[in-house]
Design a protein around this nucleic acid. Structure first.
Lengths: 237, 237
DNA sequence: TTCTAAATCAGAACGGCGTTCAAAGTTTGT
DNA sequence: ACAAACTTTGAACGCCGTTCTGATTTAGAA
């Protein structure tokens, strides 16, 4: 990599770093090419040498942020023994919430309306990370499936219910998993996402430390509905 | 009401109607004072006679939209006999989703980042509607509580876990309800909200009619976790 | 090494936005 | 009839994304 390419990579990184800083400090509106350029001592239009458009920069940020979320969540999950299925699900769920509370702007960027006038590219802004998330959840669901299948509500699910890309990838990794287990994985996702997004967007009491307890209860209920014993677990905040 | 006041009310309504139209047709960015004025044959600054600021207009819209959501949801719930607890919960849940799919921009306005640079006023943009939502869900949880309390995961919840305003209002309406039932109501909210918001924001497969089935399964599982019999219910899409 | 083509930048410009302000126009009540 | 209140306009300010022109710097081939 020549000198030119190195400078370019460095500038690109600086743009992204400042964009992230503005995002954290001033919310989505503060992420503007002109403001970034101003802080870097560059003209706003100069950034167009590094990103084709502002949306491209945002997409790039979403990718990074989504990846960092998954890194953290997977790490938390893998800190629990693989045979402790309930513990791994609990760890995943708590990690998602803690990450979201620590990075609310990032959470909004990934799961909400990212930024004024932003339009996600086809296939979503971070298809790679999204696939990782799906696979991670499916792995948890697959591990829980032997216990869960007895307790699950009966609803017919077919592979054709899912997008071909997702279904294909999943069946590659988990050949013997029934489609109902994939539905379970998505529902687990929804259960975690619901309370977290209500909390991040301020629709929960906005008072005291309650949301943590509420979320913990929800996770325990999720485990119970999977047929997993949670009698002894209690204090993993 | 004099002629002047009537004209004023009419203009105010027209502003809101056009704002809603732009919201539906062009997304949040299309809601701009200048664009509204343009369509009305008014200068953009004239709107400041009717709304103190753009955020005030948005807040007003959120209020209307949130209210219309609750009207629809409560109507759906009340179409089911009061003693059919499971049916009422199912009706509520399906109504929320159908409304969200029919009014995705409204859903984003209420539950997401509403619009570029919008900052909600203290107490939220629609405290009245939010309270109605909480009470409605609490009513459902209260009706289910006799069945549910046996199956619920044990987690201590106290009144102090909730915001004083919410707790007070709820205890007014449901004097004998334990705090755990309020936690259950909020968790029901989260369960419905999770899948719906993932679907509205395009994080679910983006393929086929699957989300409906997934959501239905989730509602059935919710009912099951409440100890409500759902063996015969199946086809209420 | 010299020369050409590419990459990088600044700065002006266009049209959009929310908001403010002074001035003109209109309605209301006295 | 007239003063006070309200409504509206249009210009202005500063912000934004984006495009374009032209200058400057760099990389690689001759």
């Amino acid at each position: 990599m020549g000198r030119r390419a190195r400078l370019r990579a460095q500038t690109t990184a600086e743009i992204k770093a400042i964009a992230l800083k503005h995002l954290r400090e001033g919310g989505p509106d503060a992420v503007s090419l002109r403001a970034i350029g101003r802080e870097m001592g560059m003209s706003g239009s100069a950034i167009y040498s590094y990103f084709e458009t502002r949306d491209a920069l945002i997409t790039n940020l979403i990718n990074d942020i989504y990846t960092s979320l998954l890194d953290q969540v997977e790490t938390a999950r893998d800190a629990v023994a693989p045979d402790d299925v309930a513990g791994r699900i609990l760890a995943w769920g708590q990690a998602v919430r803690l990450w979201a509370l620590a990075n609310p702007e990032g959470f909004r960027l990934i799961y909400g309306d990212p930024v004024a006038g932003y339009h996600a590219p086809a296939g979503g802004p971070a298809p790679e990370a999204a696939k990782r998330a799906c696979l991670g959840l499916t792995e948890l669901a697959a591990a829980a499936w032997p216990h869960a299948k007895a307790t699950q509500v009966f609803t017919e699910h077919r592979w054709s219910d899912f997008s071909p890309g997702l279904a294909g990838t999943i069946r590659e990794h988990f050949p013997d998993l029934p489609p109902a287990a994939v539905a379970l994985a998505l529902r687990m996702w929804g259960r975690m996402h619901g309370l977290i997004s209500l909390e991040v967007y301020g629709h929960l009491g906005t008072q005291t430390g309650d949301p943590a307890k509420l979320y913990h209860t929800e996770l325990l209920d999720l485990l119970r509905s999977l047929g997993l014993d949670v009698g002894t677990l209690r204090s993993s905040t």
